[in-house]
Simulated assay, not measured.
Amino acid sequence: MKITAIQTTEIRIPLRTPFKTALRTVDSVHDVLVRVQTDTGEVGYGEAPPTAVITGDTIGSIRNAIEEFIAPALVGMDVEDLDCVMTRLDRCILKNTSAKAAVDMAIYDLYAKSCGKPLYRVLGGAKKEIETDLTISVNPIPQMVADAHEAVNRGFNILKIKVGKEGLKDVARLRAIREAVGPGVVIRVDANQGWEPKQAVRIITALEDAGVAPELVEQPVDAHDLAGLAFVTSNVCTPILADESVFGPADALEVLRRHAADLINIKLMKAGGIWQAQKICAIAETCGVQCMIGCMLESKIAVSAAAHLAAARSVVTRADLDGPSLCSEDPYTGGPVFEGSRILMNEAPGLGITAVPGFED
């Protein structure tokens, strides 16, 4: 199964409501889609969002990296020689992790199809169903409370609350949400690098004292401030999840070596795809640390790839794969089924996605 062409297009999908964090506000998914074609007629699909504030990648840089560097390097290679393909993908261009991730997942899609199995089974097949949280964007308190109620009514038992823009005022916002949804709903807090280390300790301690009982706090401080992250981790009871501080395996190893976080959040767009993400899983397993699989503002193709990895590895104990649930529509055919908080893995080969807009030919 040799690669004959790698093509790109773009897709735009409106969100149900604007997505607001400490870093940005977005009202639609606008991503690059990838199709890898082979001499057998089989195709594989991938996707990458432009998340410049985190990965540095834009629509233009993603498409240029794929069309000008990655495609020429990979055309003619045999998909079934997976390690060689992934090694060349990793080395053909520096950084550009989102572009690499899109092509990586399309190659894995094809590789699993060559095995006649769904990708999660090829990767290890730990579970057939996973549960995701749903993100509540940072807004005035009444709006966040209303959004939390709506999420619970849609069947989500785990909420990821975006904060980090107003310091100690975040305590009042999180107390109001906890009072509104009751003790049975899991609350995850994501500060998106919005706090200073000592401020983070004060806020998290106040949340603990107020009975908010967050399951975890994600990336409370600047991504590059590992000393500050370690300070927060060692001075609060709530588990700390490293997100933007961990792109690839080397970052994960350094964070864990310094005891800078209790948990690791793996995102394919940061890691550069499934190939590198599996290395992070292996490091976490060795260190006895659990992982979350997360996503950027991605639609069903990229989130399906992440879901397959989450379903395959037992070290992944949490999922933040709500991209399709944030979208107002699903333009694709096939793949995992997203039913509220439940993601049911497909048994069709590969990612299971059989039709993608922009590639109908």
Rank of each mutant, 00 (worst) to 15 (best):
V163W: 00
G211Y: 05
K165L: 05
E244L: 12
G155W: 07
E150Y: 13
I204L: 02
G228C: 09
G194F: 11
L207D: 02
I141L: 09
Q219N: 08
L216E: 04
V221I: 09
A242V: 08
R202L: 00
L207T: 04
A250Q: 08
A200V: 10
A260P: 05
I203S: 04
H224K: 15
N235G: 11
V185T: 07
A146L: 15
I141S: 04
G248V: 12
I161S: 04
G248F: 03
V246I: 06
A223K: 12
I177P: 06
G272V: 05
D209Q: 13
V255H: 06
E244Y: 04
G194S: 08
V185M: 08
A151M: 02
D147V: 09
I141M: 09
V185D: 07
K165W: 06
M144L: 15
L207F: 09
V189E: 02
K270I: 12
E179C: 11
A200K: 00
F156H: 13
V217S: 04
I187V: 14
M269Y: 03
A252L: 12
T233Q: 05
E244C: 06
K162N: 09
A200C: 03
R154E: 08
A227Q: 15
T205L: 14
Q143C: 14
E244G: 01
D251E: 11
E244P: 12
L174D: 03
F231N: 06
R257P: 14
N265Q: 07
H149W: 13
P214F: 02
K198G: 10
A230T: 05
M269C: 13
A172T: 15
D243T: 06
D251Y: 03
H224N: 14
A213T: 09
A146E: 13
E208C: 05
G272Y: 03
V246G: 04
A260R: 00
H149D: 03
N265R: 12
M144R: 03
A213Y: 09
P220Y: 04
I187A: 07
P239S: 05
A206S: 11
L174Q: 00
H224A: 12
G184W: 15
V212W: 01
K267G: 08
S234W: 15
L229C: 11
I204R: 02
F231G: 07
A191H: 11
E179T: 05
L159W: 03
V171L: 07
F231R: 07
I187M: 13
K162Y: 10
A176G: 04
D225W: 05
P220Q: 10
T205W: 08
V152H: 05
D190R: 01
G182E: 08
F247M: 08
